[in-house]
């Protein structure tokens, strides 16, 4: 028996919004430690890794490990039927071929449930090596989304250059060159507005704008985003999900031919 309950459907809606543009389907691996999903986009350029810890749920029960392959478009349809403040419960029997998603209004006067067929997906689980990143940048997630959106107008690629002075995003195309530099903030009242850079070595990497823009669909989940970079390895873009877990996107760099 698997059962997981969250106080607010809005969190699950935001999580789905954050992955459904990159992935059409995904396997939710459930164990007593929580729920995990790892999947590459169709072109195998990026990888999504979602972790939701069992202790972040209002109720969590998983007697036996189960893997639930889901069509994310179908799941999005179901979640559209929930009000943001509804409780949401996911339930499945061991070895089931369906999952039930139930929404309850705060006053319990409306209860709806949706049974969704599960899919058998080819699982290609990748081992992500432990990496000592040369640069770790933390910045407001809205600022990162704005930069990715703005620079995508000028080029398919963005060059991210991180030094101890700051982080610079550059896009060069037919129009010309756009540069956006962010310096580390001094003391700010609100932590969520700060930019911080933890640099061991300067690093310059090139990435495709369209994937970065897809990652920013996770912006509503977190006020801050963390970018971890190291020469010639995938970028990690991490959004923490408060008290529940995180979503990490890995993006393979573009490398000079």
């Amino acid at each position: 028996m698997f059962e997981a309950r969250l106080g607010q459907a809005t969190i699950l809606k935001k999580i789905l919004d954050a992955i459904k543009d990159l992935l059409t389907e995904g396997t939710f691996d459930c164990s007593d430690s929580g729920i995990q999903l790892q999947a590459m986009d169709n072109s195998h350029v990026s990888l999504v890794s979602l972790t939701l810890r069992s202790d972040g749920f209002d109720k969590f029960r998983c007697d036996r490990n189960i893997s639930m392959g889901m069509n994310l478009g179908s799941m999005a349809k179901i979640l559209k039927c929930a009000n943001n403040e509804d409780n949401v419960t996911m339930k499945a029997q061991d070895n089931a071929d369906t999952v039930t998603i139930m929404f309850e209004s705060a006053n319990q006067e409306k209860v709806s449930d949706y049974e969704m067929k599960l899919m058998n997906l080819d699982q290609e689980h990748l081992g992500i090596p432990e990496t000592e990143y040369s640069c770790v940048v933390r910045m407001p997630s809205m600022e990162f989304a704005r930069i990715c959106r703005d620079l995508a107008q000028f080029s398919e690629s963005v060059v991210i250059c991180c030094t101890k002075e700051g982080v610079k995003f550059t896009a060069s195309g037919d129009v010309g060159t756009a540069n956006i530099k962010l310096a580390q903030t001094g003391s700010v009242d609100k932590e969520e507005e700060s930019v911080s850079i933890d640099m061991q070595e300067p690093v310059t990497l090139t990435f495709a704008c369209r994937y970065l823009n897809a990652f920013t669909k996770a912006t509503p989940l977190s006020t801050q985003v963390q970018l971890s970079m190291c020469a010639d390895v995938p970028l990690v873009v991490e959004y923490a999900i408060k008290d529940l877990g995180y979503i990490r996107y890995y993006l393979a760099p573009k490398i000079e031919d």
Binding site: M40, S43, H44, V45, S46, L47, E124, H125, L126, G127, I128, P129, S157, T206, A208, V233, P234, Y250, A252, P253, K254, I255, E256, D257
Partner: peptide
């Protein structure tokens, strides 16, 4: 010209 790498060229199958 830069070449787009894939994730599989960095991360191995478990």
């Amino acid at each position: 010209q830069s070449k787009q790498m894939t994730i599989a060229s960095f991360f191995r199958k478990d």
